[in-house]
Design a protein around this nucleic acid. Structure first.
Length: 589
RNA sequence: CGGGGAGUGGCGCAGUCUGGUAGCGCACCUGUCUGGGGGACAGGUGGUCGUCGGUUCAAAUCCGGCCUCCCCGACCA
C-alpha cells in the first residue's frame, strides 16, 4: 500500500450531465426560504410529508456536513459505529420508552409476528451493545457515535427539512464510571459542538433545556435563532442566561403586600376567564388565582388521573414543567363531564374544599400571593381574599409557570433588574447528561478496580443533519439564491464558459481549465451548457458555490480569468496561468 | 386529533360560480438567429383534471365518500 497513489479523486460535474435542473419558481407548498431555494436549486425533492430525496447537489452538501461532524467527533475521541434501524420492541419496553415515545414510534411486525420498531433514536441499542462488549472500568470512558437515518412518526411534519419523519442524525453516546467522568465527556462534546457549528457557519446559542422523554438530569440545546423556528427560547442579555421556554425559570414579581383579609364570596356573573374577571372587578390579573384542570397520563402507563393546577392569574401554565412535577407523560384538558364528575364548576373552579381525588399543585407564585380572587366552585361566584395556607394547601408546590418576554431574570444579581427576551429558534443539537437511566434499565455493570460492580453513567449528544442544511441556507442566502459556507458547499468552484459555441478557443480553454482544476484536486462544477450568460449566472447564484470562475473570448485574449466570490459583489481577475495556484492559496476550506 | 386552505403535464397558474373541443407561462424536444444577468422567432412532446361513486344526452365543472399535500393549533430526544 505504500506505493499506491492516494486514490482520491476530486469531485467534478458538468452541468449538462447533472441530474436535475433548476426551477424558476418554487412549489407552492414550500414555505420557508430555505425550502424554496433547496427545491429550486435541485438539491432536494419531496416524496411525501416529511420525507425527502436528496439529489446529487443536496447529497453532496449533506455529505460534507457529515464529514465535518465526523472529523470533530473523531477529534474529540469518539468512535464511529453503525447501528440497526430496525429494532425489537422488547428493548423499548425494557427502557419504558415504548410508552413514553409511543406517539412517534413507527411499529411493525415481521412474518412471525415479532413486534419491531424503526429506530427513532438509539439509546436502547447502544446500551445493549455496550453491555455485550464492556466488562471493566478499564474499558471506560468511551464515546460511540453514529451518523444515521432515524425515523419518527411525527404528528405533523412541517417547515421543509426542519420537522421531518425520516432524517439523519449524528448521535453520540458516552459511558463513564462516575459523575465526574460524565462531566468531562459532556464538556468535551459540548466543545466539539461549538467547533462543529463554527465550521458549518451556523450561529447558535446554547440554552438550558428540558430532557423530555429521553430522561436524564440536565441538558442543553444548540439553537439556531430564526423567526421561522418552532421553539421559543428566553435569553437574558445581562447575564447570558438562556433557556428553552419549556425549561426557563424566572423571578415572580411580588404583587404588592397588604394585610391578610377575611375571605368573602362575591357575585361574578359571566366571568369565567381571567380577562372577564379582572374587567368585572377592575383588578390586576396578579390579584387572581388561575385554575387549570387537566387529566394526566402517568409515566408508568397507568390510568389518567385528574390534576388541579393553580398559577397566579397573570401567569400561564408551562405544560412541560407541570408534567415533570407530577410525573406525567402527557396532559389532556379535562372534559366538561369529568369536571362535573369531580364536583367542579367550569370557569369557577376553586382550590378550596377540593375532592381528595384530585392531585393539587400550586405554582411557587401562589404561596406568597395574598388576598387572591379565586373560584368559589359555584356558578357566577368567586371568593375574594383567598390565601394559600389559610384557606387551602396543595399536594405540591413547584415551578409550573411559563416564562415569557419581559419576565425578570432569575439568574442576575438581586440588585440588577434584567428582563428576559423571547426569541424563536430551531433546535440543531442537544446534549444530555443521561446518568444511569438506561444502564439501570438494562442492568449494565462493569467491574471497578476492586472487583465490585458499578453502573456506568451515560451522556448522549445529537445533531440533526438536515436541519443544518436548512439553517445554513436560511442564514446564508440573498435574493438570488444560496450562498454556501465554503465548508459545506457542494463544490469549491463553479466554472462558467461564456460563448463556447461561438468561439471554439473559449471552449477548448474552458475544458482545459476544467481538467486542470480536477488535476489540482479542486472540486469543480462546470457549466458547459449552450445557455446564455444570464441563465448561467442566475443558476450559479441560485446553487451558491463559493467561487465562480468565468472564461470568455474577452478574458482569453487578455490571458485572464474572472473570479467572483458568491458572497461579494466584486469581481477580480487573475492571470490564467496562475489560477490554480491562486485558488490553492485562497481556498478557505 | 381540532380549525383553515389546496389538489388541472416536471414547476407556477387560469378554467369550476353559470356542465358542452382541457388552456397559459416556465421547463423539455427540433431548427434558425442571438450571445456578459433567466433573449427572439417558428414548429413540437407531454395531462384518465387526486381517487371512487352518483346526477346528466354530456362532468375538470354539480352531489357524496375517500386519499393526499400545505398552514395554525395540539403534539414533538
Amino acid at each position: 500500500m505504500f506505493d499506491s497513489p492516494p486514490g482520491t479523486y476530486p469531485h467534478q460535474m458538468q452541468i449538462s450531465r447533472q441530474f436535475g435542473n433548476t426551477l424558476r419558481e418554487a412549489p407552492a407548498d414550500a414555505d420557508t426560504i430555505a425550502h424554496q431555494l433547496l427545491v429550486r436549486g435541485g438539491f432536494v425533492d419531496q416524496l411525501m410529508a416529511g420525507v425527502y430525496s436528496y439529489m446529487p447537489l443536496g447529497r453532496r452538501v449533506k455529505q460534507r456536513i457529515e464529514q465535518v461532524i465526523r472529523e470533530e467527533m473523531d477529534h474529540a475521541g469518539g468512535q464511529e459505529v453503525l447501528l440497526p434501524t430496525i429494532q425489537p420492541v422488547d428493548i423499548w419496553e425494557q427502557s419504558g420508552r415504548a410508552l413514553s415515545m409511543a406517539d412517534v414510534l413507527f411499529q411493525l411486525t415481521d412474518k412471525r409476528e415479532r413486534a419491531m420498531v424503526l429506530g427513532p433514536t438509539h439509546e436502547e441499542v447502544i446500551t445493549k451493545l455496550f453491555q455485550d462488549h464492556a466488562n471493566s472500568y478499564r474499558d471506560l470512558p468511551v464515546t460511540l457515535y453514529q451518523i444515521q437515518t432515524k425515523l419518527r412518526d411525527e404528528t405533523r411534519p412541517r417547515n421543509g427539512l426542519v420537522r421531518v419523519r425520516e432524517f439523519t442524525m449524528k448521535d453520540a453516546y458516552s459511558f463513564d464510571i462516575d459523575e465526574e467522568g460524565l462531566d468531562q465527556s459532556y464538556d468535551q462534546m459540548f466543545k466539539a459542538y461549538e467547533r462543529i457549528f463554527k465550521r458549518l457557519g451556523i450561529p447558535i446559542v446554547a440554552v438550558e433545556a428540558d430532557s423530555g422523554a429521553i430522561g436524564g438530569k440536565g441538558s442543553q440545546e444548540f439553537i439556531f435563532l430564526t423567526d421561522s423556528g418552532e421553539d421559543t427560547v428566553l435569553i437574558c442579555e445581562q447575564c447570558g442566561y438562556a433557556a428553552n421556554q419549556e425549561k426557563a425559570d424566572f423571578l415572580r414579581v411580588d404583587a404588592g403586600k397588604s394585610e391578610i383579609q377575611s375571605i368573602e364570596e362575591i357575585e361574578t356573573p359571566n366571568a369565567t376567564s381571567i380577562d372577564e374577571l379582572t374587567d368585572f372587578l377592575k383588578i390586576d390579573s396578579n390579584q387572581t388565582a388561575k385554575a387549570v384542570l387537566v387529566m394526566a397520563e402517568p409515566l408508568d402507563g397507568g390510568a389518567p388521573f385528574p390534576v388541579f393546577a393553580v398559577v397566579r392569574g397573570d401567569l400561564e401554565i408551562n405544560d412541560v414543567k407541570l408534567m415533570n412535577a407530577i410525573g406525567a407523560r402527557s396532559l389532556e384538558p379535562m372534559q366538561d363531564t369529568q369536571i362535573r364528575e369531580y364536583g367542579l364548576v367550569a370557569g369557577y373552579a376553586s382550590p378550596i374544599n377540593l375532592s381528595n381525588s384530585l392531585k393539587t399543585i400550586a405554582d411557587i407564585s401562589i404561596p406568597g400571593a395574598i388576598n387572591l380572587v379565586s373560584g368559589a366552585n359555584k356558578p357566577d361566584t368567586h371568593f375574594r381574599n383567598t390565601n394559600y395556607g389559610r384557606d387551602w394547601t396543595a399536594d405540591l408546590v413547584a415551578d409550573i409557570a411559563l416564562a415569557g418576554e419581559d419576565h425578570l431574570c432569575a439568574h442576575c444579581p438581586e440588585d440588577v433588574e434584567s428582563r428576559l427576551r423571547a426569541r424563536r429558534g430551531i433546535e440543531m443539537g442537544h446534549v444530555f447528561r443521561l446518568g444511569t437511566t438506561y444502564t439501570n434499565h438494562f442492568a449494565v455493570t462493569v467491574l471497578d478496580e476492586t472487583g465490585k460492580q458499578l453502573t456506568p453513567t451515560m451522556g448522549c449528544y445529537g445533531i440533526g443533519v438536515e436541519r443544518i442544511i436548512a439553517a445554513a441556507v436560511e442564514e446564508h442566502h440573498d435574493e438570488h439564491g444560496i450562498i454556501w459556507p465554503a465548508s459545506i458547499a457542494p463544490y469549491d468552484v463553479h466554472l462558467i464558459g461564456i460563448g463556447m459555441v461561438r468561439d471554439e478557443a473559449v471552449k477548448e480553454d474552458a475544458e482545459a481549465l476544467y481538467q486542470e482544476l480536477k488535476d489540482a484536486s479542486i472540486d469543480v462544477i462546470f457549466d458547459d451548457r449552450d445557455e446564455s450568460p444570464g441563465v448561467k449566472f442566475n443558476d450559479a447564484d441560485l446553487i451558491g458555490i463559493p467561487i465562480r470562475l468565468i472564461t470568455s473570448s474577452r478574458n482569453l485574449k487578455a490571458g485572464l480569468i474572472e473570479v467572483k466570490h458568491r458572497d461579494s459583489d466584486k469581481t477580480e481577475t487573475v492571470p490564467r496561468k496562475d489560477l490554480v495556484t491562486w485558488l490553492q492559496v485562497n481556498q478557505t476550506t
